[in-house]
């Protein structure tokens, strides 16, 4: 039986992610874990996150899990979700500049407060709801139609230094990076666990992914 570790570092509720993983692939052993040994024993790693980045990084430091996350991100199939994606960049401008894990070189920036749609209507922050995801080729998009809508809720977005790390973009109103990928790591700004059929498909793909592109 293959296993996935959902990393529990005290940020937010992992119920939805756990249920969605179980639903996507009932044969996979889903473990909510905060213990270093157990994380190392699992085949795949899911790194979630909600809330503010400073709290997230503090929680990681407090739990002592930063080194192990960096370690497993080198070898195991790894999926970061929402703040679990932003935390992989070098730093974030949220909370007056917060250093992050620096797994993807680049920064996390705020959407401007005065962005408007093509018809002049003000675009609201947070960017909340179902938006289209323009994919580049990657095994985790298998079975997911191009431009499918996923559920987003965020006010900051990743700006990686290397364009080659961008595996999907979304318009709000300018294109921003909605997914990153490098080797065995995949990270998404949206919430697959809340994105109905296409989200479950992405989780299913992840749960059978060997980490190769």
């Amino acid at each position: 039986m293959s296993s996935v570790a959902v990393i529990d570092y005290g940020m937010g509720n992992l119920h939805s992610i756990e249920k969605a993983l179980q639903h996507a692939s009932p044969e996979v052993d889903v473990q909510i874990v905060s213990d270093v040994k157990k994380i190392q024993q699992c085949d795949r790693i899911l790194f979630p996150g909600v809330g503010a980045i400073r709290d997230c990084m503090k929680a990681l430091d407090r739990s002592g899990l930063s080194p192990i996350i960096k370690e497993v991100a080198k070898t195991k199939p790894f999926l970061g979700i929402c703040l679990g994606m932003q935390a992989l960049l070098t730093d974030s401008e949220e909370n007056n500049h917060t250093p992050c894990l620096d797994i993807f070189p680049g920064h996390v920036e705020y959407f401007s407060t005065d962005i408007t749609d093509s018809d002049g209507s003000r675009l609201k922050i947070p960017h909340m709801g179902w938006n289209k995801v323009l994919q580049k080729t990657h095994p985790l998009w298998k079975g997911i139609p191009q431009n499918s809508r996923f559920y987003f809720v965020h006010s900051y977005y990743a700006k990686p230094d290397n364009a080659s790390d961008i595996i999907a973009t979304t318009d709000y109103p300018q294109a921003f990076t909605s997914a990153l990928a490098k080797d065995n790591i995949f990270a998404v700004q949206f919430h697959p666990e809340k994105s109905q059929a296409v989200g479950l498909q992405l989780l299913k793909n992840f749960l059978s992914w060997d980490g190769n592109c």
Binding site: D117, L123, H127, G129, W130, N131, K132, R149, F152, D171, Y172, P173
Partner: peptide, 8 residues
Amino acid sequence: MGLAKRII
């Protein structure tokens, strides 16, 4: 192309 209006 953009964010969908939601029906709840």
